[in-house]
Computed example of a mutant assay.
Amino acid sequence: MTAPLPLSFAKILVCQLRQIGDVLLATPSVELLRRRYPEAEIHFFTEKKCAPMLANNPHLAKVFALDKKELSSLRKELAYYRSVAREGYDLVVDFQQLPRIRWVVAFSRARVRLSYDAPWYTRWLYTHSVPMRGGYAAMSKASVLAPLGIEWNGERPRIYLSKVERAWAAHFFQQHGIGDGHTVVTIDPTHRRATRRWPVGHWAGLIDLAAEARPDLRFVVLVGPGEEEVAAELKARVRHGGNLVVPARLLSLRELAAVIDAAALHAGNCSAPRHIAVAVDTPSLTVLGSTSDAWTFPAAEHEAVKACLDCQPCNENVCPKGTDECLTGLSPTTVAERLLERLP
């Protein structure tokens, strides 16, 4: 039997190490915790690569950005986890149950250590746990907070951009010849998993079809570290090169978010930029392969398009049929029609 929950907490730690999109999907829970405990000091434990998603968040007093490169030994790791735990939390919320988080939970000695149902061998770490609800991913995370009397009511992920960051995006557009007469669409043609990556040739076909229908369109390509070749291939395949903008350098996560914020629409695969679009109130169109609809924010301005095969969603990283037909069979014409319908 779990212990009764205290009525208030002075210091709260929220734990979600990765990935970038998942950290962003935890921000509604941070907002809900702030609303439930307005006087509490809320901290967040994540990985360094994900920390930019939490910058300027008014609900957070502190972000621990774990840099795995600096933790070169078990001794250094344990010392770091102890330093986080020594903050004196009385509530720790674990959304991921990774080993690094478990160390912090164990060292924290918090009165309440809350998570989703854990396997038997780590169940002792948590004072309270609940089954995680299915559905939209941010809602599923927030369902862990049910023992605190907290419910998700449509709160969306949030990125808090500064005036300087928005001004940078306007300057970026100017540098790349994008003016008031253009309509900007950001494009994310990448994903590390083949079953979630619409073919580059299909993205090129989509851009050409849309550009022929709307010459005012400018497509800004967004890629991450190690994905530069995808942008180069897309540029080589597109016939209407004047409608395509490939940044001269990799954008930081905050810069990428500012560009999406300034766009009329974001289109891409099921990866972090689609969640960034939700977080900055930019409509989105996502091509789904093996992924389920659980990652799609439930609102009309955020649409997922898929081939609607009987095998979807399989949620596999390798196509069980060996064909990737849920992606290769989804034509650029179909997606272009949906994209054009969503544009102002």
Rank of each mutant, 00 (worst) to 15 (best):
L285T: 08
P298S: 01
A294S: 14
N315Q: 07
L24D: 14
R109Y: 12
I159P: 00
K68E: 15
R113I: 12
G154V: 04
S115L: 01
V14Q: 14
V63P: 04
S143R: 02
M132I: 04
A142V: 02
T333E: 15
T296A: 12
G149S: 07
N317R: 04
H43D: 15
W168M: 06
G177S: 06
C319E: 08
V93W: 09
L13K: 04
R239V: 14
G149I: 05
R342T: 03
L24I: 11
A169P: 00
L309V: 01
V112N: 08
L24A: 14
T186V: 04
G242R: 01
G149F: 06
P58I: 01
G135I: 05
G135Q: 05
H275N: 15
V335P: 00
G135D: 13
V185F: 10
R86Y: 15
A167Y: 06
A210T: 03
E233Q: 14
T296R: 05
D310V: 09
S72V: 10
L145D: 03
S290T: 09
P273D: 13
Q175C: 14
Y136M: 06
V23H: 09
P313V: 00
V223W: 07
S83D: 13
P131G: 11
H266N: 05
H43Q: 07
L114E: 10
F45M: 08
V104Y: 03
E212D: 15
V223N: 01
E151G: 11
S108R: 01
A169E: 05
L54N: 09
L98E: 14
C314L: 01
H202R: 11
P189Y: 05
L339C: 06
E227A: 02
A204T: 09
P6T: 11
A258I: 08
E155D: 12
Q97N: 11
V63K: 02
V185H: 13
F95A: 12
G268S: 12
R82Y: 09
Y89K: 02
L91G: 05
D22P: 07
D90A: 00
T127R: 02
N153E: 15
Q97A: 12
D90W: 00
N243P: 00
R342W: 05
E301R: 11
T27I: 06
L114Y: 05
L234S: 04
R109N: 12
P131W: 02
G181Q: 01
R197Y: 03
S290R: 03
K306R: 14
H176C: 09
P157R: 12
L60T: 06
G322Y: 00
D310A: 15
G88T: 01
W124L: 12
V14M: 13
L327V: 01
A79D: 15
A213W: 13
R193W: 10
I178T: 07
P4W: 13
R249M: 13
Y160G: 08
V335W: 02
W203Y: 10
L148W: 04
S290M: 04
I150L: 08
E41S: 10
D310E: 14
P4E: 15
D293Y: 07
P298A: 04
A85H: 03
V259R: 00
S8N: 11
N56D: 15
G134V: 06
T27N: 11
D324V: 02
T282P: 02
G224S: 05
E165N: 07
E229I: 08
T183G: 13
Q174C: 12
P28V: 03
E155Q: 14
L244E: 14
W120K: 08
E212R: 10
G149V: 06
M53A: 15
T328K: 11
